[in-house]
Amino acid sequence: MAVGPASVVGPARLAARTARRRGVLEREGVFSWLMLAPGVAFLLAFVAYPFFYGIFLSLQDRRVASPGVFVGLANFVTLAQDPIFWQVTRNTFVYTTVATLLKILGGLAMALVINQHFRGRNLARAFLLLPFIVPTVLSTVAWMWILDPTFSVINWTLLQTGLVTQTFSWLGNATLAMVSIIGVNTWRGVPFYGITLLAGLQTISPDLYEAAAIDGASVTQRFWYITLPVLKPVLIIVTMFSVIFTFSDFQLPYVLTHGGPANATHLFATWAFDIGMSAGQLGMGAAVALAMLPALSLLIVALTLYLRRE
């Protein structure tokens, strides 16, 4: 076994050298902390510090390039009295809830379909995952053109088939714009659910289904009493994970609708960006971003504990 020069040295000298080297550095705690130090220091400086600095900012009236003034909870009070804030809150919850339900159903269906035996299965799986790996902004650009007010291919198809006589303004109408961002988010997220749930399905032994079938269990019963219970832990983790990143989504609504029309598709992240970056009100922007914290921290704590338990 290649373990470095030590193995070719005689036993006596080896013992002496080893003893010296197994000094302080070889102590478990010292070695561990030396290895951890760079990463921990980096995460403290660029995740923990910004997090607390964000709380500090949210308590200030702070514009770009000017010193901040401490205002206590004034930013949060202003937000609570702003109808747009409540609209954004509702948007975010609607977006997260509907998209998540659609992704669970779509992903489950996709996993069950690919879990069958057929030629080209690996190839199909590789292609189906494409929406999830292509950079979001770039695929969303394609969707912008698919949903274009004048040249939408969806409108063209609907008109051609005679299903409608009037075209839809997919991104210009408040309800349809929400439908659109939910649709595109679902499109991108279904493969993630599908492929991870497929991995869960593949851990189920076929014997289990056979035994159940012999005992007279119907297809539906097998799904409810074998498939779902086995998938449950995977489904919980994937869903919590996806909820966190759907709830705080920025890229997709920013590119597709910019939060419009009239704030109808603003989520916390895009609204915080508009206030903090575009309008330069760092303090207020930080407060908007922190409005995500109660829901997010519940999810993060729950998922962290769940992952640790595994």
Binding site: G29, S32, W33, L43, L57, F273, I300, T304
Partner: peptide, 28 residues
């Protein structure tokens, strides 16, 4: 080693903290 559990939880939690929570302080 002492502190392992806290670091492990910290890693999991930072993994789950979404960017939009941090971008404004980060820009400053």
């Amino acid at each position: 080693f002492p502190g392992a559990a806290i670091v492990a939880i910290g890693v999991a939690a930072t993994y789950l903290v979404p960017q939009p929570l941090l971008f404004i302080p980060m820009s400053d």
